[in-house]
Design a protein around this nucleic acid. Structure first.
Lengths: 125, 125
DNA sequence: ATAGATGCAAAGAGTTTGCATAGGT
DNA sequence: ACCTATGCAAACTCTTTGCATCTAT
């Protein structure tokens, strides 16, 4: 990642602006507002570079392909709407999960995903 | 799912026998011991039917495609060892997670995965 | 001028579907 | 005999890669 290109800036700022993790296609759509000719392969290549550079963090939800968000956010979890499939950040954390592990195990980190309906989908229904 | 076929029995019993969740390819390999000509498409079709019939439950770990296990196990979570990658069941649950969702959202279910070192790997180290 | 970055299209990997046929009832 | 379930292959989706071209340095 040696050069500063219009495409890379557009991808970076699309992720920065988003209030939630974006899928590669969502990144493409958002960044094309700035660079219409942007290709999906470029999005994938830059996501990989930005993750390696720790500017962007991959969000891996159970059974779903990765989404991407800014890496500077502190510890949080995710909520996925079962209707529209969008993913939202959840800033609370149940904490103290270490004691849930079987005896003799140590817990380093955890992932929690809530599933349900988001406010938008509940209003529409 | 109206008929009882050799293929379906082989798939069902492969999952019943396994001590861990199996990927579609692992199901295929295990069931081909019984029905060598079994095709992967039949595995996918039957996994879908068995999940719908609640005989089999999909196990979705973050960043991994679904695996399948017998459905008779009750609500539980998973612990994945970061050293040996094995997955263990965790029978406790933090509960009361609904209040973590943003206002106006409803929570239907949740998935929790703990990551750390299992007792076996800690002893070896 | 050089070589990294891009866009397109083709190639892979995993999953689903169309269709003719086998086989459970 | 009927019609579900199967096997094969093609189609589909998502992601990666090859290659010619563009462009930041």
């Amino acid at each position: 990642m040696e050069r500063s290109t219009r495409q890379r800036s557009a991808i970076r700022s699309a992720i920065e602006r988003a209030q939630r993790p974006l899928s590669p296609l969502e990144v493409l759509a958002a960044a094309q507002a700035e660079v219409p000719a942007l290709g999906l392969a470029t999005v994938y290549r830059n996501l990989k570079l930005l993750v390696d550079a720790q500017e962007v963090a991959p969000v891996t939800l159970p059974g779903d392909s990765p989404r991407y968000e800014a890496a500077h956010l502190k510890h949080h979890h995710h909520f996925q709407c079962t209707a529209c499939e969008r993913v939202y950040d959840v800033h609370q954390c149940p904490g103290n999960l270490a004691r849930m592990a079987p005896p003799g195990f140590t817990v380093e980190r955890h992932e929690l995903t809530l599933y349900g309906r988001c406010a938008t989908c509940l209003e529409t229904a």
